[in-house]
């Protein structure tokens, strides 16, 4: 039965593709450009199709402005629209659905000290990302858009990761000895 095996192999191919990071990388790049082409009339900035840090900022500050009547700063795109950008909510819904469907959803609790470290980590990472004007994803989009400062951000980020990895390695060696 060629037809059936064709569908099976197509399904297997899609399944393998969906699990490869490069597929998602290509998809985010194209979709971010498409979303700018579609929505830029509502307001800037450019190269703003997908960014976890900025879109979280827009979501929180935008909802706070609507609900509590504050006037916190956010991107013009979210300011002009009826609701701020919702991509972070989408990421949460999508990841939750995927984890449920593939039975990978599992509640993992740790101690309060670690919660505090992660809370402070998230807080500091957002400040740093906002000073630059984007998380690693918007940095990649801005690099593709032709922004040299974003390329500098990626290079120093790679340096930071190398230093952090070496620190982790040294820590692990200490624990073994």
């Amino acid at each position: 039965m060629p037809a059936a095996s064709d569908t099976t192999s197509l399904y297997a191919l899609m399944s393998r593709l969906s699990r490869h990071p490069a597929f998602l990388g290509a998809l985010i790049g194209i979709v971010a450009a498409f979303s700018q082409a579609l929505l830029i009339s509502a307001g800037g900035p450019e190269a703003y199709g997908f960014c976890v840090a900025c879109h979280t900022r827009d979501l929180v500050n935008g909802l706070s402005n609507i609900i509590a009547g504050t006037s916190l700063a956010l991107a013009p795109l979210s300011k002009n629209a009826i609701l701020p950008v919702m991509s972070v909510v989408g990421v949460m819904i999508g990841a939750f659905l995927s984890a449920k469907v593939h039975k990978e959803h599992k509640i993992r609790k740790t101690d309060y000290q670690e919660y505090l470290i992660y809370f402070i980590g998230g807080f500091v990472v957002l400040q740093l990302a906002m000073i630059f004007g984007g998380c690693p994803y918007r940095a990649a989009l801005r690099t593709g858009y032709g922004d040299i400062t974003a390329l500098l951000f990626i290079i120093t980020m790679a340096l930071g990761v190398i230093v952090g990895t070496l620190l982790m390695l040294r820590q692990a060696e200490k624990e073994i000895n």
């Binding site: 998602l24 998809l27 819904i93 995927s98």
Partner: peptide, 11 residues
């Protein structure tokens, strides 16, 4: 867009 990215990012 977020749902699509979130689904594939989890995968």
């Amino acid at each position: 867009i977020g749902i699509l990215i979130g689904y594939l990012a989890q995968r």
